[in-house]
Simulated scan of single mutants.
Amino acid sequence: MSRSPATTNRPHSPCSTGSPAQQSPPYRQPSVAQEMGCATAHLHEHAAMVSLPDFDRPVWDSETILFKGHALTDPSAQEQLGTERTAALRRVAELITPALQEGGQDERGRVHGDLHRENMIALFGGGIGIIDFDDCGEGHFLIDIATVFSSVHRIGRKEPGAYEEFARAFLAGYTRVRPLPADFARLLEPYLLLRDAFILNFVTAAAPVNAVVASWGPGRIAGIVANMQAYVEGCHPGTVTCEQS
């Protein structure tokens, strides 16, 4: 897939347009958060409209990420996680899989697959571009939304109300372009957990061979397992309703 930025440029779009580029848009600005939502929705609109008959990419679902993922299939990954954390991941996988199997064709299609905040760029003239399509594949559109939310929650939760404000503005931008996937409020939580599992797969695979990942990996694993434990006890802390309670 091309690594060229996909922008919000569309005729008569309610979102701003512009030209590249500055990475890591200032998500705390409500207008920028809305643009991030617009860009994500436009990406999904394009995915739904353009036919690619020879599109041979991963299917990002519970089977691929959870049960066939590195964290639950590789002995070295389970050594990194430890017995209790591996058991927690397996328990969460069993709990969320039924919800991850929901949704019709309107809620599924080509997804970016790794749409964290650093894979968005602020355009100098306004608007947001999207880069790095290495993990592009097929899946529920909530995968991308949950990935954006997860990446912002990890830093935004340090300031009271910041994540909640971002989520409201992002969703306002998204719904300017297209409706949210069906049952969004209920399904966001399992997709946040699926994103957590995606990161666990990456960290446990990369840490043994990559010194940079090894330096921050253990802390990231601990944070993800804490999210999973919070889910089992009540709800994932990135779930918007949890932040509002």
Rank of each mutant, 00 (worst) to 15 (best):
R3T: 01
A6P: 02
T7E: 02
R10F: 13
P11W: 06
G18T: 01
P20Q: 00
P20D: 03
A21S: 05
A21K: 03
Q23R: 10
P26S: 02
R28V: 12
R28D: 14
Q34Y: 00
Q34A: 14
E35S: 12
M36V: 14
G37Q: 12
A39W: 03
T40Q: 08
L43T: 01
E45H: 11
E45T: 15
A47I: 03
M49K: 12
V50I: 15
W60A: 00
S62I: 01
T64S: 11
L66Q: 05
K68L: 08
K68G: 04
L81G: 11
E84W: 03
R85K: 13
A87V: 04
L89V: 15
A93K: 05
E94V: 02
L95A: 15
T97G: 01
Q105C: 04
Q105A: 14
E107W: 03
D114Q: 12
D114L: 09
R117W: 10
R117S: 14
G125E: 14
D132S: 04
F133E: 03
C136F: 01
C136I: 14
E138N: 09
F141C: 07
L142G: 05
T147N: 12
V148Q: 11
F149P: 05
S151K: 08
H153G: 06
P160K: 10
E165H: 14
F166H: 09
F170K: 06
T175G: 09
V177H: 09
P179N: 05
L180F: 06
A182D: 06
F184Q: 02
L187C: 05
L192K: 12
L194M: 15
R195F: 13
L200Y: 11
T204N: 13
A205T: 08
A206C: 06
V209Q: 07
W216V: 10
P218F: 11
R220T: 11
A222H: 07
G223I: 04
G223V: 05
V225C: 00
M228H: 01
V232Y: 10
E233R: 15
H236N: 15
G238R: 05
V240G: 03
E243A: 15
Q244G: 02
